[in-house]
Design a binder for these strands. Structure first.
Lengths: 134, 134
DNA sequence: TTTCGCCCTAACGCTAACGTCAACGTAAGT
DNA sequence: ACTTACGTTGACGTTAGCGTTAGGGCGAAA
């Protein structure tokens, strides 16, 4: 019987992580300061687990879609609920659904922006082709 | 024959605009400082045209989708090309298409974020229902 | 006339999200 | 023994995007 339990010994140093995601070490420490990441320690050195890596991924995506670090923290906390009182769970559920509708609005904004820009690009393209005629 | 040309005499004071879009007057002036808006003047007072209003709309949407004011300015400039050399037009076209692919990436990010959050919300929901059983 | 309400400029203040620099420890290669 | 690479903790600097006084003008209502 193979041991499938503690097998995920995937660990990362700070430089491994910063290279993979192209962020500075400063940034990773900053996120830790803000409670977004909580890597283990080997003496002083930080050791990032697979879960830390996953969280970082979420953080960066959150940033790309325009969330502040504070908001991202809220979202990360959502993924951390194993325990928690029922009332607390309800609050979290509420927050999660709010974020979702927020994201859906953003998606619409983005689609409109894409549509507008596409139209404009085609107009410019048209202007260029007209000039080629002359 | 009705005059369809100069008919759009739609003008807005700074307070009208700030109320409609729920931004501060300071913000509108700031955007002007940054060259994002260029309202006409009546003495010192700003007079915003219908086009200014449209630009503001674009600015705010740009912000919502995470563009910096500098990037938004670039985009706004795209909408302003009536003149311009052919080479300049090509550059603009290039920029516009870059923004579009950027936006498409963002849309994917957002869709993934929505999917993740939805799953998490359902899990939390499941946890709540389990507790109701006991 | 005084008080409103709306408008202006100029300039300092503030928060977020890091960058950057100083000063230091440790472990490995030469 | 020295350098090089990687790690650490402060702590100050920087940029963007406004907020917030401070100080004043203009026209209508009381």
């Amino acid at each position: 019987m193979p041991d499938t339990s503690g097998d995920r010994q995937q660990c990362y140093s700070i430089t491994e992580l910063r290279r993979e995601f192209e962020v500075s070490a400063r940034t990773l420490r900053f996120y830790e300061d803000k409670g977004l990441l909580t890597p283990a320690r080997d003496g002083q050195a930080r050791i990032y687990s697979y879960r830390d890596r996953a969280r970082l991924k979420l953080i960066l995506r959150g940033k790309r879609v325009g969330f502040s670090l504070a908001e991202i923290k809220e979202i990360l906390d959502l993924y951390n609920l194993r325990d928690g009182q029922a009332t607390q769970l309800k609050v979290s559920l509420e927050k999660g659904r709010e974020k979702i509708t927020e994201l859906e609005h953003q998606r619409r904004d983005i689609e409109e922006a894409i549509a507008d820009l596409s139209r404009t690009c085609e107009i410019i393209d048209g202007m260029l082709k007209e000039r080629e005629m002359s």
